[in-house]
Each structure stands twice: as C-alpha cells, then as structure tokens.
C-alpha cells in the first residue's frame, strides 16, 4: 500500500505538486494520467525516495519515508523496481548484466540461481535471445522490455512505470500493455503507471488518477473518468471533439477558452 497525504513540492519556486493525496492499494494497477509537465513523474520519484517533498506524508507499507535517510531508503527500494521513461539501461553492461544487476550486487543467490532468474525474466518479456547484446544494439521497444525484465528479476512487490509506451510503435505498445496486465494477473503486483497514452491507461488501469499542473483532478474508475464533467478532463480525453468546435481553444490551464465570433466571421442571415 502506498499512501500520499497532502504532499506539496516546489521546483525552482514553481509548484509541481499541490496538496496531493492518493492511495495505491496492494495488488492494484493505478494509472496516473496527465499532460506533460503536470507532475506525474514527480509522484514516482517521490515513491522511490529519489526526491523529497517540501511537506506532506508518504507511506509505503505503513512506513513513513519522508525524512528517511538515504541509507534507510535502500530497504524500502528493495521491494520496488522502476521502469524509466528512457529505459535507463546501463550502457556499459550487457543485457544479462543489466537484468541481473541487483542480484549480482546483493550476492544473496548463487550464480546459477541468478542466471536462472535472468533467463526467466527475459523469457517473460520474450527477449531470451538478447542475453549477450549491449543496450545500444536494441530497438526502443526492446530496451523497454529489457527494462521491465530488469524490474522483474528482483521479484519486487511494487513496479513503477514512467511513460512505458512513450515513443513506441503500436505493436510494441500492445506488447508492453499486455506485459503490465499479465504481471498484475499472474504475479498480483502493485503497479503505478504514469502515462499520457490513453490506450495504455484504458488497457491496464484498475483505477485512474488525473493530475493537472500538480493538482489532482480526478480519482476513480475508467467509467467515472469517461463521464467526468470537468472541461480539463474532457479536453484531455477528447481533444479532437472539443477543440474542433468553432471558437474553442485550449487555455493555459488545459481547459477550453470559448471565443465569441466577431462581426466579420458571422454567417450572414
């Protein structure tokens, strides 16, 4: 269980999260939706303790992590894994070394057990034949899948995904979405997926949270989201419909600005 209570965060004097509260129950997949620069990735980084909030409380499995020293965060992170937006595979290591990185570091298992875990994880993402390849030899979709395999190899209870399908073609997007769904069904993992890709959100979410400029606009199920009245949510979900209406423009808050037609533009009676 991950719980944010009234979390506030500023970057260079600009608020990134304002009084943000959310809850991710164990075994659920929660999707955090929102436009670019809305504060979605900040939420993931706060969960991992890579960033510290200015105020508020963040609890992971009941344990407060705000103010926890870096060395104590290691124990919290041991139960988590993150799939970064750009995959963040280690350039100088092979796929095998990347996937088994944490296991090699921890030295808790014998080498043959580590090897088995690596192969199992790569089989799960369908990339068992890339063991000796370097990250530079892989395509964007393959890198994302290796990043998921790396996350899986350490048997985490929580996986955090930062834009897992950004920049991928439809086939790779589908593959990643299916992997996220399978992980929830088969492994019953707690997953937090940050995305602005609606297809991914609709496919994998148990619950959705929408963030806009650091504020939580919505928290509920997919059906509730689709029927939400907030113009900013409607614009985000159906920009082609809303913004195609004559006189409607996106305003700086992500809502709609309706401009009355001028005399010249009016249709003659």
């Amino acid at each position: 269980m991950i719980r944010f209570t009234n979390v506030c965060m500023m970057f260079h004097g600009r608020p990134v999260l304002k009084d943000f509260t959310m809850e991710v129950p164990s075994g659920h997949t929660v999707v955090i939706l929102g436009g670019s620069g809305g504060g979605k990735t900040t939420v993931l980084r706060l969960i991992l303790g890579l960033l510290r909030p200015d105020s508020g409380s963040i609890r992971v499995d009941g344990r407060e992590i705000v103010g926890l020293p870096e060395r104590n965060m290691v124990a919290i992170r041991a139960h988590m894994a993150m799939v970064f937006q750009g995959s963040a595979l280690f350039d100088s290591l092979t796929v095998r070394e990347n996937v088994g990185y944490r296991l090699y570091e921890e030295q808790a298992l014998p080498d043959d057990a580590i090897e088995r875990k690596i192969v199992e994880s790569l089989c799960f993402v369908g990339l068992e034949d890339t063991l000796e390849k370097m990250p530079a030899e892989l395509s964007g979709g393959m890198r994302k899948r290796v990043a998921i395999a790396r996350a899986l190899a350490c048997s985490p209870e929580v996986i955090l995904y930062d834009e897992p399908t950004a920049g991928l073609d439809p086939i790779n997007t589908h593959l990643i979405n299916e992997l996220i769904c399978r992980l929830q069904k088969e492994e019953c993992l707690t997953q937090v997926v940050v995305t602005h890709d609606l297809d991914t959100a609709y496919r994998v979410a148990d619950r959705l949270i929408m963030i806009h400029r650091g504020e939580k606009l919505f928290d509920g199920t997919l059906d509730m989201l689709k029927t939400a009245d907030d113009p900013r949510i409607r614009t985000f979900l159906r920009p082609h419909e809303i913004l195609a209406t004559p006189g409607c423009f996106p305003d700086k808050d992500g809502g709609i600005r309706v401009v009355a037609p001028t005399m010249d533009e009016e249709t003659p009676a």
């Binding site: 980084r45 991992l48 890579l50 870096e70 290691v74 992170r77 041991a78 988590m80 894994a81 993150m82 970064f84 937006q85 750009g86 963040a88 595979l89 280690f90 350039d91 990185y101 944490r102 570091e105 921890e106 350490c154």
Partner: peptide
C-alpha cells in the same frame, strides 16, 4: 554526465546501489 541525463544514476539508486 551522460549517465545523469539518461537517468542511469537514478536507476542505480532505484536498484539499491549508492
């Protein structure tokens, strides 16, 4: 610097490495 801008340093921390 390359590791920093490609989030590899954050990935190291996420993997429990200092």
């Amino acid at each position: 610097a390359s590791m920093q801008v490609t989030e590899q340093i954050d990935a190291l921390r996420a993997e429990g490495t200092d």
